[in-house]
């Protein structure tokens, strides 16, 4: 989540107080990522320092509330961010991927059980999200944010399924030949995947 840019987007139509920014942010993201007002004002302070928003005064009714407006530079920064690619081609450091790949090299560990353990846990999270989505019928923002999470988790399960299918075909994992050192180089070997 990029909270500063999300706040710039919410300020684009008109100047707003921090509390309203918090409420709009949560409404537009289905309340999946709660914000607190202090966090909003701290972020607005940094945006003001960078010249992206401007302080327009306080509220007569609630002195702690401050009104902020988007500047021209803020609007340009928002446009730049919206069009900046969010994928750069480098694979994210996925913990499940690393665990499964590492498990392949650990003697005495059943990789199939490691895969099933992660598949079950991922399904349990998907079930909880699906229940939330079922309850949120009609709340488009919440539904779309949960869809994003469910599709990400589904991809993880499909990767685990694919790994399992490959391993069951009896594939072998070639381990790299060790770099020769002080005369104790082990022979290159091929691990049979269980």
């Amino acid at each position: 989540m990029t909270i500063p840019h999300a706040l710039l987007a919410l300020l684009a139509p008109e100047a707003k107080f921090g509390l309203r920014l918090k409420e709009e942010f949560e409404a537009r993201t289905g309340a999946i990522w709660p914000l607190n007002v202090g966090q909003v004002y701290a972020t607005l302070g940094r945006l003001e320092r960078d010249g992206l928003v401007e302080y327009r005064g306080g509220s007569d009714d609630a002195p702690s509330q401050k009104l902020y407006e988007l500047t021209g530079a803020g609007f340009e920064e928002l446009r730049r961010w919206l069009h900046t690619p969010s994928v750069d081609g480098r694979p994210p450091r996925d913990e499940v991927v690393i665990k499964v790949m590492v498990a392949l090299t650990v003697p005495g560990v059943d990789v199939g059980e490691v895969i099933q353990s992660h598949r079950r846990q991922t399904l349990e999270v998907m079930q909880a999200y699906t229940r939330t989505k079922a309850d949120a019928a009609g709340d488009l923002a919440a539904t779309m944010v949960i869809d994003a999470e469910l599709l990400r988790l589904e991809a993880a399960v499909r990767w685990l399924d694919t790994c399992e299918a490959r391993l069951r075909r009896g594939a072998t994992l070639d381990t790299p030949e060790p770099v020769p050192d002080s005369g104790s180089a082990a022979p290159a070997k091929s691990e049979t995947i269980r």
Binding site: M1, T2, I3, A31, I32, W33, P34, L35, N36, Q39, V125, A128, Y129, T132
Partner: peptide, 8 residues
């Protein structure tokens, strides 16, 4: 499942 305050 909701991410705690402080998500950035």
């Amino acid at each position: 499942l909701i991410i705690a305050d402080g998500a950035t």
